[in-house]
Nucleic acid binder design. Structure first.
Lengths: 92, 92
DNA sequence: TAGATAATTAGACAAACATCTAAATATCGA
DNA sequence: TCGATATTTAGATGTTTGTCTAATTATCTA
């Protein structure tokens, strides 16, 4: 089920967006200042992240504020954790 | 720098390969038995994983044995860990 | 209500991707 | 060395992806 999440993480721009959101919530415009791509392109990336459940959005007047959804992030981390203790069945 | 790794993780077949490899090393042929795609397609996925550093390969006679490279896996986990303790600067 | 600002949706396009079949390479066993 | 087996490489093809510009929607303010 976390397939959309992994796909969303495949793009460097989207990973950077998540890193920026980790510091605090941002409007679409504030996020746009950090990238050299057009606003529609950034909006498309945000829609991808939202579709994957990695971010949520909420309108505040003219702005739309984006926030990290750490719950879905935890799910992805959970997948990775299955790979951390594999020292019991290596045969080479 | 872990960009190739994230891209490699975006495909469900490749994630499944990693999960199989977590149980133990496998030859390309053994891995192929678990999928409905052609062997050349699987070989391509293995090459992608190898290029990302997520697996290593070693020829044993006619077979090529694939193994997880947990080091690179750890690097990816490291990126995720930066998102686990974000409870100090949320403003909503 | 009209104009300005913030952001998204629509539509187009080139590059990247996953897949296939056919051909090539490498190794083993008789 | 010859044939069989294991796997990859080459080349082609349809789909998905990231990007753009132009147009649209939503909100605020005067």
């Amino acid at each position: 089920m976390p397939g959309e999440g992994f796909k969303a993480l495949a793009d460097p721009t989207r990973r950077r967006i998540l890193e920026l959101l980790r510091e605090g919530n941002c409007t679409a415009g504030e996020l746009a200042e950090h990238f050299d791509i057009s606003k529609p392109s950034l909006s498309h990336h945000l829609a991808t992240l939202k579709n994957a459940g990695l971010v949520t959005d909420e309108r505040h007047g003219q702005n739309i504020v984006y926030s990290l959804n750490t719950t879905v992030m935890q799910d992805l981390i959970g997948w990775f954790m299955g790979f951390t203790n594999t020292e019991c069945d290596k045969d080479e």
